[in-house]
Design a protein around this nucleic acid. Structure first.
Length: 820
RNA sequence: GCCGGGGUGGUGGAAUGGUAGACACGGCGGUCUUAAAAUCCGCUGUCCCUUCGAGGGCGUGUGGGUUCGAAUCCCACCCCCGGCACCA
């Protein structure tokens, strides 16, 4: 340092104060919410993290902006509850157990301990007193309780359903463990094996789930849910079956096109359809069996792909179309799915593209029964899907096909052949998992009493501490004698426990209810708190959950409402789905790809404030995208500038009205923009506005003395706006300015429309839609004046070339377009 | 394949019927310094013309359309991302 040095200003050094404030906030319990006071309550929920190990950039990307939004709500005077917990059951823990010989419980809880520390370093205002962990018996006990309630109400039932099965490992595989149709461990081709499994009747709620009117969700998400539920109205109709020795005398199909019933030339059964074995003729048997076997290896995506070459096999059997007495060949093809409709479809080649291709390939007839406009009676080149009059359709000839649909249904009903039916693409929810690290399903199998539920008073059914995880064929719990052997509550005799566990989506169905009273033991939630704090006001989480979790949770909420645990139609009033952050290579981050960006190094290097703001600045939150560190220095410079502006006073002095007005306008305009952007979760543009403000204040300070009142107002409002985004630096600067602790308990700054308004506008002048001039004009300029100003422009005259304008369009305060 | 989202400078992005490229990164030039870093200031889509004042053409994945005016709306196509029911 040389002797000439002025009092050197201290530089922005996050490491010097971030830890200090983190500890202070924790010691003061600054973020603890008084749940007893529900005045202006705001339940802000972000999806709970899975206990995968270390926190990665994706967690920060999800949680830092959620934290900023929760802080903003709090500054607006809401009593905000912002809890956190851990999704602790699942496959990765079990994989770790198998791979490293570790106890999945230890793996999970060690991860939680590490993640807690990392989450605290983020500076988020989580209320740790309400943490819930799904692997705690106090939590999963209520999963079991809910299961029993489902069972009591007939909403839980058992049936056979296929699961991925590796014949070599003798074990069930998750879809993730199947790579190109083969077992990831041993490479053996995976087959579908039928197992007895538990289901929840989500379809009973399908119509109610289609009602999105009681919540404010992004439209793409509701569209996806609507399509996922896939409600179709149509007809279920019987085709006569007469195969010697087969008891069943008809096959039912579901169709959304009853108007095309006279055009049926074949029927397709799903290869798994129970009738297939019975009706197949001896000559066709070998071919059919080979096809059925082959279909067991195909994934559903492959089977339903519309651009795949159609495959299928004739069973040798026929059914009768009762509408016209026509004999119709019965085929099997893998594009028919057993679970959808009746597992059988009628083939109308002329009016369904898939049927058309099938018929063409197998040389089946293709009679037209809906007349295309100006149809000449010739064969079609492709299926005709549009409207038209029914033809070749007996007594229905000449009926417009839309009227024909109800008419055909009515006729079928009168004849006793069928009826109007609604079917859904949505399937009942299979919740059984043949795994050890999950909630045990609380059911018993008694040789005398059959399936018997565990008594409520015997809950929780605890996971054993010493299960074996190595894959040897059975579910790991099935080999644990102490777990399996139980007593039947009905007869007192020996019984076996159900050894399957529940899908982990069960946990995420209701964890946000548990947060309210994680220690409550008289029920899943303290009813008083449920009444006061539910539903969730704002939910944030990854877009990848748009359908499954968010639909299951809505279903489960409605069930909880029906058993009186919660009130109201929907769990999440407002939803925001952020995009997914990808690795620098544009791929999903995963350890196996080696593209995981650990946030800890960055936090160490730049501080938590810089890192979280960088994530908010890189683009619109809903879009996500590849993560690169390229621009982080821009955020560092901006916060450095905020720091300098706040800790070094400018020269104050008397000033002209103009610059004072300009500074106040900058302040109020920025508050307006930032408020608006925060409301829409547009962090990137909010930060851009704050950067412009900081740049503007720097410039004002450099160019001479500034007005004290305007400056102090600017700095104060700027720090308040920075507070939700960068909680550490805001607190430090607020405290240095001698203002009362804590900046996070202050009110969000207000703005004045008049002060925010610009005095001058730039009037854009176009000739034939091309910009030719820009003229500065007073903000309130009248239309006639604006047009006159535009026509007087030299640039405009040059482009008019003497021609006179045909039309002059004026967009107030913005633009004049002269059309010639 | 189906459902949903997206494609804009060298890079991340802004603008959702009215000035394309705000705000940043990077680059170039300057200030300060013995020097470097940091800071601060200026320039930065592209091509043409230039008498150096400026002027003009092109430009938002591709092709077409609607409109006085299109990144924005409509139609067709291409590519990328998410989901597709046992990863969570």
């Amino acid at each position: 340092m040389n002797q000439k040095t002025e009092a050197r200003t201290e530089r922005y050094d996050p490491a010097s104060f971030e830890k200090k404030w983190q500890d202070r906030w924790a010691a003061d319990r600054l973020y603890e919410t008084d749940l007893g006071d529900s005045k202006d309550k705001f339940y802000f929920l972000t999806m709970l993290p899975y206990t995968s190990g270390d926190l990665h950039v994706g967690h920060w990307y999800a949680m830092a902006p959620s934290d900023a939004a929760a802080r903003y709500k709090r500054m607006q005077g809401k009593n905000v509850f912002f809890p956190i917990g851990f999704d602790a059951f699942g496959l990765p823990a079990e994989n770790a157990a198998i791979k490293h010989g570790m106890d999945p419980r230890k793996w999970t809880y060690d991860n939680i301990e590490r993640m807690r520390g990392q989450l605290r370093s983020m500076g988020a205002m989580f209320d740790w007193d309400h943490e819930a962990i799904s692997a705690d018996p106090e939590f999963y006990r209520w999963n079991q309780w809910f299961f029993l309630k489902m069972y009591e109400r007939g909403l839980a039932y058992k049936k056979r359903a296929p699961a991925n099965w590796c014949p070599s490992c003798q074990t069930v595989l998750a879809n993730e463990q199947v790579v190109n149709g083969a077992c990831e461990r041993c490479g053996t081709p995976v087959i579908q094996k039928d197992l007895e499994q538990w289901f929840f009747r989500i379809r009973d709620y399908a119509d109610e789930l289609l009602d999105f009117s009681q919540m404010d969700w992004p439209e793409p998400i509701t569209t996806m849910q609507r399509n996922w539920i896939g409600r179709s109205e149509g007809m279920e109709v019987e085709f006569g079956l007469d195969v010697p020795g087969v008891e069943q005398k008809s096959i039912r199909v579901f169709t959304t096109r009853p108007d095309t019933i006279f055009g049926v030339t074949f029927m397709v059964l799903a290869p798994e359809h129970p009738l297939v074995a019975q009706i197949t003729t001896p000559e066709q048997r070998a071919e059919v069996e080979a096809y059925v076997d082959q279909a067991r290896h195909a994934t559903e995506i492959e089977r339903t792909s519309t651009d795949r070459e159609k495959t299928g096999v004739f069973t040798g059997a026929y059914v009768t179309n009762q509408f016209n007495g026509r004999q119709v060949q019965v085929w099997i093809a893998d594009y028919a799915l057993l679970w959808y409709g009746t597992g059988a479809v009628m083939g109308v080649p002329a009016h369904d593209q898939r049927d058309f291709e099938f018929a063409k390939k197998f040389g089946l007839e293709c009679p037209v029964v809906i007349s295309p406009p100006d149809w000449n009676g010739k064969a079609l080149d492709e299926a005709y899907l549009g409207p038209g009059d029914m033809v070749n359709s007996g007594q229905f000839d000449g009926t417009p096909n839309e009227d024909g649909k109800p008419a055909v249904i009515e006729f079928a009903a009168k004849q006793g052949w069928g009826q109007r039916t609604i079917t859904y693409r949505l399937r009942d929810w299979l919740i059984s998992r043949q795994r050890a690290w999950g909630t045990p399903i609380p059911m018993l199998y008694c040789p005398t009493d059959g399936i018997v539920p565990v008594r409520e008073s015997d809950l929780p059914v605890r996971l054993p501490d010493d299960a074996e995880y190595l894959p040897t064929g059975d579910s790991p719990l099935a080999r644990h004698e102490g777990f399996v052997n139980a007593t039947c509550p009905k007869c007192g005799g020996p019984a076996r426990r159900e050894t399957d566990t529940m899908d982990t989506f069960m946990d995420s169905n209701w964890y946000f209810v548990r947060y309210l009273s994680p220690d409550y033991d008289a029920g899943p939630v303290d009813p008083k708190l449920a009444e006061r704090w539910l539903p969730v006001d704002q939910y944030t989480g990854g877009a990848e959950h748009a359908v499954m979790h968010l639909l299951y949770a809505r279903f489960f909420w409605k069930f909880m409402r029906d058993i009186g645990v919660v009130k109201g139609p929907e769990p999440f009033l407002r939803l925001f789905n952020q995009g997914q952050i990808l690795g620098p290579d544009g791929q999903r981050m995963s350890k196996s790809r080696g593209n995981v960006v650990p946030p800890d190094d960055q936090v160490q290097k730049h501080g938590a404030d810089v890192f979280r703001n960088y994530l908010m600045f890189i683009g619109p939150w809903e879009e996500g995208g590849p993560f690169r560190l390229d621009g982080i220095s821009g955020i560092e410079r901006w916060l450095g500038r905020v720091w300098n502006l706040a800790i070094t006073e400018p020269r104050f002095g008397q000033e002209d009205a103009g610059p004072v007005r300009d500074m106040r306008r900058l302040t109020h305009q920025t508050v307006k923009r930032v408020t608006h952007d925060f409301d829409g979760f547009r962090w990137n543009t909010a930060i851009a506005a704050l950067m412009e403000m900081a740049n503007g204040l720097s410039k004002a300070r450099e160019s001479g003395p500034v007005d004290r009142a305007a400056w102090e107002e600017a700095i104060e409002k700027m720090l308040l706006m920075v507070a939700p985004l960068a909680p550490f630096i805001a607190e430090e600067l607020w405290s240095r300015a001698g203002k009362p602790y804590s900046v996070h308990q202050q009110r969000w700054p207000s703005f004045d429309e008049d002060l925010a308004r610009a005095d001058e506008i730039t009037l854009v002048v176009q000739v034939n839609g091309k910009v030719r001039d820009r003229i500065s004009a007073p903000a309130g300029i009248a239309e006639a004046d604006a047009k006159a100003l535009a026509l007087a422009s030299d640039a405009v005259k040059r482009h008019l070339e003497g021609k006179s304008p045909r039309q002059v369009i004026y967009v107030p305060g913005k633009l004049v377009n002269i059309v010639i």
